[in-house]
Structure formats: structure tokens, C-alpha cells
């Protein structure tokens, strides 16, 4: 008589290796935000002055863009499970398009900083800012490539894995945005 053992790993939705990636990415960004918050205490006025140079409205719009993109990615998973290939691709395409909008707004902010002579070494605030948001933007670009691949194959398991990666990118931004852009300003 065969016996099926359900392990703790089996209880996780989606691909286990994607969860390993999600946990490691969250640990990296989490450590970065804690160090940033600790270093800020050594120069509150300098960090506040540097933070005032950021585009809070643009970053706020990007929050809406990424959250909506995550919703489309989550919908794509349900559509793929129902075998609705075209609708799945449309949903993934919408999520990817909003990812491009996110990068465009982020690129405009970087260009504005560069035009103002602000770079990596201007202040330690900007060192953290470029490291954390640049690393995050690299993940957005990776997510777009993943979306293209899973939309091409359009298999439910692959769509779920791609969406998992995108939700991790979404989650990281939801934590980055208030710490980098809002705390210290309000």
C-alpha cells in the first residue's frame, strides 16, 4: 500500500525554488533598509535634505502602477489555470506594460537627478537610494523577461512561477517606498 507524505515544502504554493529566491531577496532588501534607517540616525538633517530632492509624487504613482501590475499578474494565474491562453497573455502583457511604465518613471527620476548633478557619491542617502532602487529596477527588468518567456509557453505552472517573482518585486517596492521616500519627510 502506497503512502503519500505531505511535507512542509509541499504546503507552499508554487515553485519551492522561487520561494527560496523570494526569501533571499527579501532578506537582502530588508537588511539594506535596516542599515539605511540606522545610518539615517547619524545625519537626520542631511538625509532629510537629500530626501527632499526625490520625486515623491512619481514614486507614489509608481506604487499604484506596480500594485495594479501585480493584480494583472495574479489574474493571469487564474486565467492560465482555466486554460484561457489568449486572456492569460493579455493579462501578462498588461502587467508587463505597467512594468515598463514603472521603469520609465524611475528612469525619468534618475535622469532628473543626473541633470541636477546628483550621483552615487553626493550623499550617503543617495548611495543607498541608488543601490536599493537600482537593484529593485534590475529585478523589474528581469521580471519583464520572465513575463515574456511564460507568456510564450503559457503553461499554468510557469505563469504561477512568473507571477510569484513579480509579486516579490511588488512586495519589495511596498517596503522601499515608505522608508526611502516618506519617513523623515512627513
Amino acid at each position: 500500500m502506497s503512502e503519500t507524505r505531505v511535507t512542509a515544502i509541499d504546503a507552499l504554493p508554487g515553485e519551492f525554488m522561487m520561494w527560496v529566491l523570494i526569501m533571499s531577496e527579501l532578506a537582502v532588501f530588508g537588511a539594506g533598509l535596516i542599515v539605511f534607517s540606522a545610518v539615517r540616525l547619524t545625519d537626520l538633517s542631511g538625509f532629510a535634505d537629500a530626501q527632499a530632492q526625490l520625486h515623491t509624487v512619481g514614486a507614489g504613482v509608481n506604487t499604484v502602477v506596480l500594485v495594479t501590475s501585480g493584480w494583472l499578474a495574479a489574474r493571469a494565474v487564474g486565467l492560465a489555470e482555466k486554460g484561457r491562453v489568449r486572456a492569460t497573455r493579455v493579462s501578462l502583457g498588461g502587467a508587463a506594460a505597467l512594468g515598463v511604465v514603472f521603469l520609465w518613471i524611475k528612469g525619468a527620476e534618475y535622469a532628473d537627478k543626473a541633470a541636477a548633478g546628483i550621483n552615487f557619491e553626493t550623499h550617503s542617502f543617495f548611495t543607498f537610494y541608488y543601490l536599493l532602487t537600482g537593484f529593485h529596477a534590475a529585478h523589474v527588468i528581469a521580471g519583464l523577461v520572465i513575463f515574456a518567456l511564460v507568456a510564450w509557453k503559457c503553461q499554468p505552472r510557469l505563469v504561477e512561477t512568473g507571477a510569484q517573482f513579480w509579486h516579490m518585486v511588488d512586495l519589495v517596492w511596498l517596503l522601499l517606498f515608505p522608508v526611502l521616500y516618506l519617513v523623515g519627510r512627513v
Partner: peptide, 30 residues
């Protein structure tokens, strides 16, 4: 209080993403 409230909102948002989008609502231990 406003700083802390903003961070509490981020905390709740992170939980929503984990439970609803990443599906952890179906894996209570995780």
C-alpha cells in the same frame, strides 16, 4: 504617529501581498 501609521500601512500591504497574491493564505504555517 504619522510616520508610524505609514509604516503600519506598509506592513498591512506586505501581508496582503503575501497572503492573497503569493497564496500564503492557503499555507497557514508558512
Amino acid at each position: 504617529w504619522a510616520v508610524l501609521a505609514i509604516l503600519v500601512a506598509a506592513w498591512i500591504k506586505a501581508r496582503v501581498v503575501l497572503r492573497a497574491y503569493l497564496g500564503l493564505a492557503g499555507a497557514p504555517d508558512w
